[in-house]
Design a protein around this nucleic acid. Structure first.
Length: 303
DNA sequence: ACCAGCAATCGTCAATGACT
DNA sequence: AGTCATTGACGATTGCTGGT
């Protein structure tokens, strides 16, 4: 259905061969911890910030790969000591999303760790085209088209929205140049944010514009709506359609990448906060231990 | 002013898991 | 099986900074 596989060969650069296990060393913090499974001495934990919570414990000059988890009170607990390389690769091959991890982190405990917000697709849905978008757009061919609501009420509800475009020689607002026969319509939502619609535009010799159905499928990123032409026949139209689909795909992925980076940043920030908190906790505990030791020694001396 | 080095950011592709 | 969401990797771009 979707043209998501149609042009992979055409525009893919040389394969990067990046099927390696993911690089571990994204963010590295060194914290001091008292692992409950390693008796007696505290060890330096090189905490490799990884969602899989795989960490490298460096103790007595030896580096081992261990599984470290938190016990819910900020204590690191070693839960697994010998994971085979294959197994590790398997674990690392795919990790949960930053949103998932962070939400788990924040639900487990977490003062100061904010949940990553769920997508705001619902609220970003177009609720009132008629009142927020320009009524006129200019096609890449330079024509000005009026976007008029077929049913005014329809446009003010979520979901399927039908508009018709009819030629009208009035002031143009904005549209970007696109592959032949395609126009990106830019409009402003109620909250002031700019949104884009990729619209295939074909104009009959008589100057009439085809009708398209504009809908906001739930799968599309916030604010992106799909325009489906009502009858493609010629190979040229098919090509246009696939170009449009590609454009849409790229747009979606662009948006997804942005979101992903934002979540990643937020996730790293949270982890850094967490490290700071744990470091502080550890300091306090060390101090407490010290004073208790002193107290104990003092008592022993006096007896 | 010019340049090189660097970090941050972005768009894109591809791989992968989840879901239908 | 197909689609979609997510994310690592890569290359391009941009802005900043220190050296000449």
């Amino acid at each position: 259905m979707d043209g998501s596989i149609d042009d992979k060969s055409e525009d893919s650069p040389s394969s990067s061969g990046s099927s390696q296990p993911q690089n571990l060393s994204t963010v590295v913090h060194t914290i001091t911890a008292v692992p409950t499974a390693i008796p007696n001495q505290p060890v330096q934990v090189q905490s490799v910030i990884q969602p899989t919570q795989q960490s490298v414990i460096q103790a007595a000059g030896q580096i081992q790969t261990v599984q470290v988890e938190e016990d819910g009170e900020g204590h690191l607990v070693r839960t697994d000591t010998d994971i085979g390389i294959e197994k590790r690769r398997e674990i690392l091959s795919r990790r949960p999303s930053y949103r998932k991890i962070l939400n788990e982190l924040s639900s487990a405990e977490a003062p100061g760790i904010a949940k990553i917000e769920e997508d705001k697709e619902e609220e970003a849905a177009i609720t009132s085209i008629q009142t927020t978008i320009p009524s006129y757009v200019q096609t890449s061919a330079g024509q000005t088209i009026q976007i008029a609501a077929a049913n005014q009420n329809e446009l003010t509800t979520q979901g399927l929205q039908t508009i018709t475009m009819t030629n009208a020689g009035q002031g143009a607002v904005t549209a970007a140049a696109m592959p032949a026969g395609t126009t990106i319509v830019q409009y402003t939502q109620g909250d002031g944010s700019q949104q884009f619609v990729t619209v295939p535009v074909s104009i009959s010799p008589a100057g009439e514009v085809q009708a398209y159905q504009i809908r906001a499928p739930s799968s599309l990123p916030a604010g992106v709506v799909m325009a489906t032409p009502t009858g493609i026949t010629s190979p040229q139209q098919l090509a246009e359609e696939s170009a449009r689909k590609r454009e849409l795909r790229l747009m979606k992925n662009r948006e997804a990448a942005r979101e992903c980076r934002r979540r990643k940043k937020e996730y790293v920030k949270c982890l850094e906060t967490r490290v700071a908190v744990l470091e502080q906790q550890n300091k306090t505990l060390i101090e407490e231990l010290k004073s208790l030791k002193e107290l104990y020694c003092h008592k022993a001396e006096t007896e």
